[in-house]
Nucleic acid binder design. Structure first.
Lengths: 335, 335
DNA sequence: TTATTAAATGAAATCGATTACACCCAACCA
DNA sequence: TGGTTGGGTGTAATCGATTTCATTTAATAA
């Protein structure tokens, strides 16, 4: 039952605990008939090894922690799938941690790493600073990063080129004839926001178009934020005909604001988001957005991190910059 | 750093490991100045206790496992939030397990319970049979269930009354003047499906309307399934003017099929789903659906289960039937 | 001052596995 | 026949904490 232990099995099979352990761990150093006896005893007693004892002794848990900002956001859920499937195929389990957008929760979850509950951690767009993250790595903990890059010899990263992505989006809008393009950024302190803004500016510069600071607003990466930001833009009374929102949620907020203000998308206002949330295909008009290889990033990083934990052979390649893809749909198409 | 242990701290502070342990566990049995010495040593050595050793000795992990069918589905994500917040407030952590719709994965994750990695498990609409689940409970493991009910003295359950819910939906459709109402069920073996079908039939009976088996189709709880099921219904050439889909995903599939077949919702076909997925508000027309108190179910059950683990005082109330709410939107409203 | 009691502390057992090391014994070789 | 060899097995140390029990120290009462 629930509380039989290795010594009970040993007694029942008339062998030592060492032998039972050998059977459990598929050692070749045990004769077929002994093995059979032991297996029979295990079966009869319904014995399952205590993972805590095992992990304590072996000093590993074969578990990877994954910290995401919000498990409700599909972006994270898909990354998790990538990590999980790869990890499982390499005999690792994953422990999913929902930081609920709070930095303190992230930190709490990091303690799982420090107290040996997990062998490594994958942080997906964490709020922790580069310095804080690097400190963990410097102390010998195994950490990987998704959706962000830190230049540190022990921290593998998988991320998209936000600058390039944003440039592509803005170029597309310019190509559609837009000259005044607003940008909705996410949290002011999020690297993604910053980089996307950078790409936005570069695209304008390359096209010889002026950068108008008033066309930048912050929308906190969520729907309400996007809604409010768009209203603020409108109140400024500056003309603009397109909005590039740093994610789909904010773009959805723009949709809502436009509906209220009777602004027709895309005829009067072009809109592009980022993430390819499933919803973008269901809204009217269908939303143009950017697809990032979420599953792939998860899978790539999980493999890399597990590799690193096992042979300590840090291959030089630890930065995986993957390509994103602009999906042009109705919301940004001039007729 | 990473590998200092309690004995190192003890030596540095010139005390015994027992004393350090007492400080760590906030025992009152330690003098202020000793305590200070110890805390200083802990601080200086950057010591963190090894959770594996601690859990092994104390025979608990203060961790709850949560097995969901698919982490990408918002329904589960919200339940998880409810569980997590409640658990955290009671000093418990949760370990989220994504079974990816596979029964074998569910079973794999159950082994976390059996090998003492978690103190208890919450299963959300699992594929495991009642008998299998009861067997775990009978063996002394702590299990709770969400979205399903098993009559077992040790298994607390939080679920909605599917029969009542389905009746309400069908009554609403009847009230809108529909006489031929199709039903799209989920997995044939899912209890939810079965119960919703039961409610559907009861509502018909109560209204004195005939039950037409040909109007029942299986849609596997996903969009493609709903799409295909609707097409099959249409091919049968039986008239019907409304569809009740056992979840929103399938209803979405119906939307797609209708678009292809140029059937206008709700004028020619009324549609109602279940779950209140966020998408339902964004589709055109807005989808009528049923809201279940997901967060509440999670919170309720987490509290109950933790209670049960701690005082072993099984209060008699272990079945929480919560009320769902029909949200009537555009897709089911005759003009 | 001494007896009594309570508060602090430490030594060692314990949780349940893995594994280094020692040992036994049968098979093989010289 | 005696000495190697090595496969199979057992004993005991170990992982890093908690906790029981015994002991020392300090505080209080007599």
């Amino acid at each position: 039952m629930k509380d039989s232990k290795i010594i009970d099995v040993a007694r029942r099979a008339n062998v030592s605990v060492a032998t039972v352990s050998r059977v459990l761990n598929a050692s070749h150093l045990v004769s077929p008939k002994t093995k059979e006896k032991v297996l029979k005893a295990i079966e009869e007693m319904n014995y399952t090894p205590n993972a805590l004892a095992k992990n304590l002794r072996s000093r590993k848990t074969m578990t990877l922690g994954v910290v995401v900002s919000d498990i409700l956001v599909a972006y994270y859920a898909e990354i998790i799938k990538g990590i999980e499937n790869t990890a499982n195929s390499l005999q690792y389990k994953i422990l999913i941690c929902d930081a609920q957008n709070q930095k303190e929760k992230e930190q709490e979850y990091m303690s799982l790493l420090m107290n040996r509950t997990v062998d490594g951690m994958i942080l997906v767009t964490p709020k922790l600073s580069n310095k804080e993250i690097a400190a963990y790595a410097d102390n010998g903990y195994t950490i990987g990063l998704i959706g962000r890059f830190i230049d540190h010899p022990n921290i593998p990263c998988a991320y998209t080129d936000n600058v390039k992505m944003a440039k592509e989006v803005v170029n597309h809008l310019i190509g559609q004839g837009h000259e005044k393009i607003a940008f909705l950024s996410g949290y002011a302190d999020a690297i993604d926001s910053y980089e996307r803004l950078e790409g936005y500016m570069k695209a304008l510069r390359d096209a010889g178009m002026p950068f108008i600071p008033d066309l930048i607003e912050n929308g906190n990466f969520n729907e309400e934020g996007g809604y409010a930001a768009f209203k603020r833009l409108k109140e400024k009374n500056i003309d603009f005909t397109a909005v590039f929102a740093a994610n789909d949620e904010m773009a959805l907020g723009v949709y809502k604001a436009c509906r209220e203000l009777s602004i027709e998308i895309p005829r009067q206002m072009a809109v592009v988001g980022v993430d390819n949330n499933r919803i973008t295909k269901y809204v009217t008009p269908k939303m143009s957005t950017v697809e990032q290889p979420k599953y792939t990033m998860g899978a790539l990083l999980a493999e890399k991190l597990i590799d690193q934990m096992n042979d300590n052979a840090f291959s030089d390649k630890r930065a995986f910059k993957v390509d994103s893809k602009l999906l042009i749909r109705e919301s940004s198409l001039s007729s």
